[in-house]
């Protein structure tokens, strides 16, 4: 799985560096380095929401530093094949607001 976190100006101001470090810590503490690739990205075109996070070059999620932990845990669960992400995503977005 590849996760891209936008570091463009708008997302940076909303805490994308924090989101990245939360993701990094989670990936490192769970030894998911081989399974989750964390990358930076420039503008993903959703500047008015919270920090844009794109999963596998598809859907773009809006994740704030507050919801980042929960979001990455959900992705972690998906990686180990326990749950689908669809329904959980809605919760993440609600938390972020």
């Amino acid at each position: 799985m590849e996760i891209k976190v936008c570091i463009g100006s708008a997302c940076h101001l909303k805490g994308s560096y924090e989101v990245i470090s939360i993701f990094k810590n989670y990936i490192a503490s769970h030894d998911y380095d081989q399974r989750i690739v964390l990358k930076s990205s420039f503008c993903l075109g959703k500047c008015s929401d919270a920090v844009s996070v794109q999963v596998d070059n598809e859907k773009i999620f809006s994740v704030s530093p507050e919801s980042a932990q929960m979001f990455i845990e959900l992705l972690g669960q998906q990686v180990i094949g326990q749950q689908a992400i669809g329904q959980q995503t809605i919760n993440v977005q609600r938390v972020s607001k």
Binding site: I7, G8, S9, A10, H12, L13
Partner: peptide
């Protein structure tokens, strides 16, 4: 235009 940030 609405303003956009430039801040990195």
């Amino acid at each position: 235009l609405p303003p956009s940030p430039l801040n990195n």
